[in-house]
C-alpha cells in the first residue's frame, strides 16, 4: 500500500491541470477545438482518475452521488431552458438572436449557456456510470465461480 506514493503524488499534481484544461477546452471551444462534450468528458476523467488512485469512497466524498444525480438533470434543464428563454423573449425555441440586444452577442451568450449544459450533463453521466459500475461488488459472480 505504501508503494503507490508515486502514483498518489503524481495524481495530486496532474488532476488540477486536467481540470483547468477542461475549463480551457470549454471556454476556448469558440476559438479552437473543443466544447461542452469534450470538456465534460475531461472533467469526468479527472474525477475517475482520482477515484482510481485514492479509492472510490474518497472520490464519493469529494463528488457525492446525490450531487452527480442532480447535475445529471441540471445540464439538460439548462440547455432546454435556454430554448424557453428564447421563446419568452419573443423568438423561436433555441433562437439565440433574441438573447441580447446585439444578435451576434446573443449568439455568443446562447452558445455559452448551451455548452455549459452539455458539459454538466456529460460529466455527470460519465461519472455516474463509473460510480455504479465501480460500486458493484463481485458478490453475484463469487457464488457461480
Amino acid at each position: 500500500m505504501r508503494l503507490d506514493i508515486i502514483l498518489r503524488v503524481i495524481a495530486k499534481l496532474l488532476i488540477p491541470f486536467a481540470l483547468v484544461f477542461a475549463l480551457y477546452v470549454q471556454f476556448h471551444g469558440d476559438f479552437g477545438p473543443g466544447g461542452g462534450f469534450q470538456a465534460g468528458v475531461i472533467v469526468a476523467a479527472s474525477v475517475i482518475f482520482y477515484a482510481l488512485i485514492y479509492g472510490l469512497p474518497a472520490a464519493r466524498r469529494v463528488v457525492p452521488d446525490a450531487l452527480v444525480e442532480i447535475l445529471l438533470a441540471v445540464g439538460v434543464l439548462i440547455y432546454a431552458g435556454v430554448g424557453v428563454i428564447g421563446l419568452l423573449l419573443g423568438g423561436n425555441y433555441l433562437d439565440y438572436f433574441v438573447l441580447a440586444g446585439d444578435p451576434v452577442h446573443g449568439q455568443h451568450r446562447g452558445i455559452l449557456w448551451v455548452e455549459l449544459g452539455v458539459l454538466i450533463t456529460v460529466a455527470a453521466v460519465m461519472l455516474k456510470v463509473f460510480y455504479v459500475f465501480a460500486g458493484r461488488r463481485r458478490d453475484a459472480g463469487e457464488g457461480g465461480e
Binding site: 476559438f31 479552437g32 452577442h105 449568439q107 455568443h108 455548452e115
Partner: peptide
C-alpha cells in the same frame, strides 16, 4: 453571424 470563429462549435 454567430461571432464564433470555430465553425464546428
Amino acid at each position: 453571424k454567430t461571432g464564433v470563429p470555430n465553425v464546428v462549435t
